[in-house]
Amino acid sequence: PEIVAAANPKSSTGRLDVFTRVIADGTRRFDMIGAGYHGPLYAEISPKTFPVLVSEGSRLSQVRFRTGDAILNIDDLEALHATERLVDIDDADLTGGVAVSVDLSGEKSGGFVGYRAKRHTGVIDVDRRAGYSVEDFWEPISARPDGSLILDPGEFYILASKEAVQVPPDYAAEMVPFDPLVGEFRVHYAGFFDPGFGYAGAGGLGSRAVLEVRSREVPFILEHGQIVGRLVYEKMLARPDAMYGQRIGSNYQAQGLKLSKHFRV
């Protein structure tokens, strides 16, 4: 009765532009499961770009369980950053969470900044790993001299954060939108960052956040270094036996600009 739960699409689900929401009986919000709930869960599955094949047992969403208020306030976050260096910049913005900006320079990825999804492609089996050619589903986006990118309405993009971030093993994090008043676009479907993500002790040395970007009804211009989200950190009840990147088949440890596990590198 003292535990609540929240759901998100898995990283591999979000990177396919498949939007999933979990619904529980009698609740008033999607993806929120109230304390003491006992009953079925339902999945709303909405592929936005690619046709996808799912089977019984396909894993599309994930649930995080919480008790009490574990979110770090600004003082606790600053203290943690001072000891663990949560983000690899000297002037980190920690107000309301660790600020995450978009990388449109192309300096860390051979002159290109991301991928735009193609339309009218073949079907993707969500349970098939490394089974598809990148060029059959994605168009690479080259960096522009002015460090900008125009998001076309209804198109889906994979971009990466300018910063490398890490989540120490005693903590978890969640990406939250920066400010909806800045523009009508979404930057992250799968918001959970597990303990050990990017952490040096788990083989990370910092990992850039991959951004799943979709503009809404109007074109929108993103600029290099523009803040697009914030990482809110929470204290775990105990350190996990295995961190992200260790023995659990983690696909995105020490990642840069990376597509989902379904595509051949």
Rank of each mutant, 00 (worst) to 15 (best):
V167E: 06
F193R: 09
G110E: 07
P180E: 09
S142G: 08
V213P: 06
V187E: 06
F137S: 03
G201L: 03
K108I: 01
E107K: 15
G204F: 08
G131F: 05
S109I: 01
E135I: 06
S109E: 06
D194H: 15
V123I: 15
G225E: 05
P153H: 06
V123D: 07
H120S: 14
D146W: 10
V167D: 02
I89S: 01
F112Q: 08
F220C: 04
D88L: 05
D127L: 02
F197C: 01
K162R: 15
E212F: 02
P145F: 01
V102S: 00
G131T: 07
V167T: 06
V187I: 12
G114W: 11
I221E: 15
S142T: 11
P195N: 02
A160V: 15
E107W: 01
R116V: 14
G114I: 13
F197S: 08
G154S: 11
A209E: 12
F193I: 05
R214L: 05
R129E: 14
G198H: 07
R208S: 13
I150Q: 11
S105P: 10
G122C: 10
M175K: 00
F156T: 11
F185E: 06
F156E: 04
A143F: 10
D136V: 09
P169T: 10
I124N: 04
G201Y: 05
D179M: 09
L149H: 11
G183I: 07
V134Y: 04
H224G: 04
P145N: 04
Y132G: 03
V113R: 07
A209M: 13
L222P: 08
P180F: 06
G204W: 09
K162L: 14
D146P: 08
R144W: 01
G154W: 10
I158S: 01
E163C: 03
F137W: 07
F156C: 13
E155H: 15
F197Q: 05
L159I: 14
D125G: 00
V167W: 04
A143T: 08
A143S: 15
S133G: 13
E212K: 01
G154M: 11
G225Y: 10
P140R: 15
P145L: 07
S109M: 04
D127G: 00
P169M: 13
A190W: 11
L104G: 08
G183Y: 04
T121F: 03
P169N: 05
S109L: 03
A202R: 07
T95V: 12
L222N: 08
E212N: 02
G147I: 05
L104R: 12
A143R: 05
I124L: 10
G201R: 10
A172P: 00
E107N: 06
D170L: 14
D136A: 14
E212P: 01
T95G: 03
F220M: 09
D103T: 02
A130T: 10
R129H: 09
K118R: 15
E107G: 03
S161V: 03
Y132L: 09
K118I: 03
V218D: 05
L104P: 12
Y157S: 03
P145R: 03
I150L: 15
G196T: 02
E223K: 13
Y115A: 05
D91S: 06
V182I: 12
E174R: 15
G97S: 09
V187Y: 07
V134F: 01
G206W: 13
Y199M: 05
D179N: 14
Y189L: 13
H224N: 15
T95E: 14
G96Q: 09
S101A: 14
I158T: 13
E135P: 00
P145T: 11
E184G: 11
